[in-house]
Amino acid sequence: MSTAVVADALTKTYGSRRGSLGRPAVDNVSFAVEEGETFGIVGESGSGKTTVSRMLLGLVAPTSGRAVVGGVDVWGGSREDRRRLPQAIQVVFQDPYSSMNPRMRIGKIIAEGLRGPGGKAARSGELGRLLQLVGLPERYAELFPHQLSGGQRQRVAIARALAMNPAVLVADEPVSSLDVSMRGQILNLLASLRETYGLTCVLISHDLGVVRQFCERVIVMSAGQIVEQGDPDEIFQAPRHDYTKALVASIPHLPGQA
């Protein structure tokens, strides 16, 4: 089993060369994700978890450190290498409203990353397959985002990501903006797609309960640093770091729940 994602001493400090804005947003974060593994990054706002994901995706350049995804050195590699990045890693964002261009039709949105040979027929066949994969009827390709519900939009976002056939899928708070009764639909969809395609999943969330059910390994971040890592169940039942202890203790419980 090879390593799908390697984060090596990633650091991000915002601010100009003359002075920085206080502490680094991401401070010396290192971790590795095996192929096919489901990995979780847990943290609250300001913990740096989103910045870490953006460094892996090639959106935000680290101040120092390396990120290697699917064999591609995201920031140090050659141009040809970096062109392979979209096939290596894709993302599903949190907000199903702002993650799609409101003026584009669903079909165009999903197929946006697709290029290359095949022509229109092949592409529309592919589009149909993708829509079916995420449980949406084919006629939805003609609709606009505002005509869909939040959950349906997240399905579109998943289809868009899968269109690139990536090895790694990053899901950044994929259900936090959805109604509670809908979250399970999307999470189950991600779980089944993970099975079918052998995807390496990186789930970013503030919800330790979701991460516990979905991920095999997790890191807990606070103030830009990794404070704890390991098996989600162990961390939940026996947290070692003070921050994790406070986090676990604050989780509200339904009556009669552990």
Binding site: S149, G151, Q152, D179, S181, M182, R183, G184, Q185, L187, N188, A191, V210, R212, Q213, F214, C215, E216, P232, D233
Partner: peptide
């Protein structure tokens, strides 16, 4: 871990 997530089919 590994169990399906609970949900209500359909939408509001």
């Amino acid at each position: 871990r590994g169990e399906a997530f609970g949900f209500i089919s359909g939408s509001v």
